Computed example of a mutant assay.
Amino acid sequence: MALVGLFSAKDDEFEGKLDLLASLVEARGGQVVGRHVQRRGVSSGGADKMGDPLSRRTLLSPGRAREVAEACRQRGVGAVVFAHPLTDHQRAVLRDMFGCPVLSGEDLR
């Protein structure tokens, strides 16, 4: 499985949040083979865009979504787990992009 999280540049605890998500995956017999993080507001250009809405379709930038999709294909990932809640529409769009089921951390609790 691959983990995906969208975090503010001000969030210093994002790695710990991904570690917790990884422990939920492993407690259910899954193996984490990749972690993908989208940081928002890291660069000066990104900080200017902090107020802009996120992609309602993917929660990720187009480039990061392509990066995750390619990594999923290369590693034969069986599922992707997002650190954030997802709508049914987002799950469907991401499933089509990534080529595997897409869950949120809430699904593992």
Rank of each mutant, 00 (worst) to 15 (best):
G29H: 04
G29R: 09
G30S: 06
G30P: 13
Q31S: 15
Q31H: 08
Q31G: 13
V32Q: 10
V32L: 14
V32E: 13
V33N: 15
V33T: 14
V33W: 07
V33Q: 13
G34L: 15
G34F: 07
R35T: 08
R35E: 13
H36W: 15
H36L: 15
H36E: 14
V37E: 04
V37G: 01
V37L: 05
Q38F: 13
R39D: 06
R39K: 10
G41S: 02
G41P: 05
G41M: 01
G41F: 09
S43C: 13
S43V: 02
S44H: 04
G45F: 08
G45K: 05
G46D: 00
G46K: 05
G46C: 03
G46W: 00
A47D: 09
D48H: 10
D48E: 14
K49T: 06
K49H: 13
M50D: 12
M50H: 13
M50G: 13
G51R: 04
G51A: 09
G51D: 10
G51T: 08
D52M: 09
D52P: 15
D52V: 14
R56W: 11
R56G: 15
L59A: 07
S61E: 10
S61L: 07
P62S: 04
P62G: 12
P62V: 11
G63A: 03
G63S: 10
G63K: 05
R64H: 12
A65G: 06
A65H: 04
A65L: 02
R66S: 06
E67M: 08
V68I: 07
V68Q: 00
E70K: 10
A71T: 10
A71H: 05
C72N: 06
C72Q: 02
R73A: 04
R73N: 06
R73P: 03
R73C: 00
Q74H: 00
Q74T: 15
Q74Y: 06
R75S: 02
R75Q: 09
R75D: 06
G76P: 11
G76E: 03
G76F: 10
V77R: 07
G78P: 08
A79H: 11
A79C: 04
V80F: 01
V81I: 12
F82V: 08
F82M: 10
A83K: 15
A83I: 10
H84D: 15
H84E: 12
L86R: 02
L86Y: 09
L86I: 01
L86D: 04
L86M: 06
T87W: 02
D88S: 11
D88K: 03
H89F: 12
H89Q: 14
Q90I: 04
R91A: 00
R91K: 07
R91N: 01
V93Q: 01
V93H: 00
L94D: 06
L94T: 01
L94W: 00
R95V: 01
R95M: 10
R95G: 10
R95F: 04
D96F: 06
M97T: 11
M97I: 04
M97D: 08
M97P: 02
G99R: 01
G99F: 03
C100H: 12
C100F: 08
P101M: 02
P101C: 12
L103G: 05
S104M: 04
S104V: 00
S104A: 06
S104P: 07
S104C: 05
S104N: 05
G105P: 03
D107P: 07
